[in-house]
Computed example of a mutant assay.
Amino acid sequence: MAGKRAARGTLLQPANRFAPCSSTREDDDWYQAEVPSARPTEVRYERARTVISRNQSPDLPFSQSINPYRGCEHGCIYCYARPSHAYWDWSPGLDFETKLIAKSNLAACLERELQAPGYVCSPINLGSNTDPYQPLEREQKLTRRTLEILLKYRHPLTIVTKGALILRDLDLLVPLAQANLVHVMISLTTLDDTLKRRMEPRTASPAARLKVIRALTAAGVPVGVLCAPMIPALNDHELEALLAEAQQAGVTQAAYMLLRLPHEVAPLFTAWLAEHYPLKAAHVLSVIRQCRGGRDYDSRFGARMRGEGVFAELLAQRFSKACQRLGLNRREGYALDCHQFCPPGQQLNLL
Rank of each mutant, 00 (worst) to 15 (best):
W88H: 13
A107S: 15
R17P: 01
L191I: 10
D59F: 02
L110G: 07
L258N: 05
G302C: 07
G345C: 06
S187W: 04
A303S: 11
E264T: 00
R318S: 08
V160I: 15
E200I: 10
F62D: 08
R54N: 08
V160Q: 14
L114G: 04
L279V: 12
L188V: 02
L210I: 05
K280N: 10
R198C: 10
L142G: 03
T10S: 06
R144E: 14
M230Q: 14
G75I: 05
K321P: 01
E238C: 08
D131Q: 09
R300H: 12
E97C: 08
E240G: 13
L348N: 04
A281V: 04
P117T: 10
E308F: 00
H183R: 04
M199V: 06
F96V: 01
D192I: 07
A6Y: 07
A303R: 11
L268Y: 00
T143Q: 07
T217P: 03
V223R: 09
K4P: 00
V43L: 14
H183L: 05
A33R: 12
I77P: 00
D236F: 08
D29R: 15
V265H: 00
C76H: 04
F301H: 12
C338L: 05
A19F: 02
Y256G: 03
P20R: 09
E111A: 11
T24R: 14
M230T: 15
R138N: 09
C342M: 13
A233H: 14
D192A: 10
L114H: 09
P58T: 11
R304G: 02
G302T: 09
A2S: 14
Y256I: 04
K99P: 02
Q32F: 13
V284D: 03
L326M: 08
T158N: 08
L172N: 03
L279M: 13
P58N: 09
S37N: 10
E73R: 07
V35I: 13
Q178R: 15
H183D: 07
